[in-house]
Every structure is written in C-alpha cells, then in structure tokens.
C-alpha cells in the first residue's frame, strides 16, 4: 500500500510567551516542530504499513528549513520524504497550499491513502486536507479517530462528531485527517536516527510538479491577511482570597445581581 502523509512545520505555539511590558508575544527563539496532529498521521501511516506492507512517504510544502521536520519523520521510520520548496510557493493560503500539495502527490504517482493532521496549530484552518482531497478528486473522511478495517480497495473508519462518532465506509484512494485520539506516536528509533542523519529529501520546485503559476503562492491565493493583532484581554474581575465562606457568599451574591441564578 502506498501511503502519503502531509506534514507541516509550525512554530511551537505552546512555547509562546507574553512580554509583560508590551503585552505582545515573544516569538524569537520559538522552536519549529512538526505540527502535533501530523505526528498522529505519521504514526497511523507506519501502523498501516506494518499491517499491510508498502511504503510511507511524507510530503511538505515550505521553506528549506522544513528539511529538519522531514528528517524527524524519517527517524520515526518513514521511508521517504519530499519537500516542495520554491520561493514562488510562499504566501500560499489554503487554496494554493492544497493545489501545490495535490500536484506534488500527482507527481509521486498518487497514493492509496493520504493522511493529514486534523489542523495545523499555526494557521488553524483545518482546510488543507479537504482541499487536497478535492483537487485529487478522491473521497475524504475528516476527524478520523480510528481506522477499523482497511484493505487495498476500501476502509471502515470512525469520524468524530460533536455528539460522538460515525462509522464511515469509503473506497480507496481516500484522504483521512486524523485527531489525537487515534494513536500514541512512537519515538524515533536509533536506526531511524542514523538514517535521518544523512538523509536529504527530494526537493521539487514549481516546474518539477508542473504547477501553474497562477495557482501557487501569494499570486494563486484568493485570501489576503490584512491585519494581525493580539486579542483584547478581558478586563480583570474580582479576586477573592482568604476566608472561603466569605468568598463563596460574595460570588453567589454577584451571580444573583447578574440574574444568572
């Protein structure tokens, strides 16, 4: 089975600190990591390979430094990695990102299963998985928390919903975007680390994947970010310390005043 995992390198948003003087984010020195949800996608791909045989390839679009993320994937046991890197890809919104990734996957000769994370923790849109599926004209199941059954033609998977989950049957090839409930990602093995050390990903530029320049990067992106700002902080309330019964009485009084109870 041919399995492709789309992975994105992201700044570690859990490591973001606030500068107390200016109330702005301190982003210098924030490490880059593989998008956490993509780790689950990699793990699931490796498990599918263990069960069904085949090959796992990761693909990423981004600047040259993404090589580090691809090496990390290799150290976990991924067979091969492809980096779509060209200054012309920069500034892509989800439309152009989905287009570019789909052209890369076409160039690879397609796949039986394509896995994405549920969402990236920087852009946070969750739109790229469905976007790639649409460009490749394949079915998709989002928010997958379990692959119950799979062979080379079809799969039965669990899609998480607001109320619980749905069991969905799909034909393959298909796109699955995965949530963290699906598995527990493994740590890199020693052998993997050795392989990663000397590994260099195949790098494809726009011309290599026959990408139409009208559809890539900033030029191909219908959306523009016009403003970025830090969210307004909620104005502080009352902090009650000391006697608990007094504190409780004050709070209940306040709730009555606000007509909440």
């Amino acid at each position: 089975m041919n399995i492709v995992v789309c992975i994105k390198q992201v700044p570690d948003t859990t490591d973001v600190r606030i500068d107390p003087a200016t109330n702005t984010l301190i982003r210098e020195g924030v490490p880059s990591i593989i998008n956490p949800f993509d780790m689950y996608a990699i793990e699931e791909a490796l498990r599918l390979r263990e069960k069904l045989g085949g090959k796992v390839t990761v693909i990423s679009m981004g600047p040259p430094q993404v090589t580090e993320a691809l090496k990390e994937a290799i150290s976990m046991g991924v067979d091969d990695a492809i980096l779509l890197s060209d200054r012309a890809f920069a500034g892509a919104d989800t439309w152009a990102t989905s287009y570019t990734l789909s052209m890369g996957i076409r160039k690879m000769g397609g796949a039986d299963v394509i896995l994405c994370g549920k969402q990236a923790i920087d852009g946070d849109t969750a739109q790229v998985g469905p976007g790639v599926a649409e460009f490749l004209d394949i079915p998709q199941v989002t928010y997958v928390k379990k692959i119950e059954q799979i062979d080379d033609k079809k799969a039965k998977v669990w899609r998480m919903t607001e109320e619980g989950y749905e069991v969905v049957d799909t034909s393959l090839p298909a796109m699955f975007t995965v949530v963290k409930e699906i598995n527990e990602p493994r740590l890199p093995s020693l052998k993997g680390k050795m392989k990663a050390k000397s590994f260099q990903p195949t790098i494809w530029k726009a011309a290599d994947i026959a990408a139409d320049e009208k559809n890539i990067g900033l030029n191909g992106s219908p959306t523009n970010v016009v403003k970025i700002f830090t969210p307004p902080v909620r104005s502080g309330g009352i902090i009650l310390q000391g006697d608990i019964n007094e504190a409780v009485a004050t709070v209940v009084e306040g709730l009555k005043e606000r007509q909440i109870i």
Partner: peptide
Amino acid sequence: ASTIGRALIPRVAIKARTGLTAD
C-alpha cells in the same frame, strides 16, 4: 465551523476557485 462545515466548505471553495476564511 462545525465538523460538517469544516469538512464541506473547504471542498466547495476549491471547486468555486475562491477564498475561504476559517473559524
């Protein structure tokens, strides 16, 4: 921006060749 909307609307935006702002 529900599980349904987040699965459906991105596919529609690709087909319609237009931008989609999430969430």
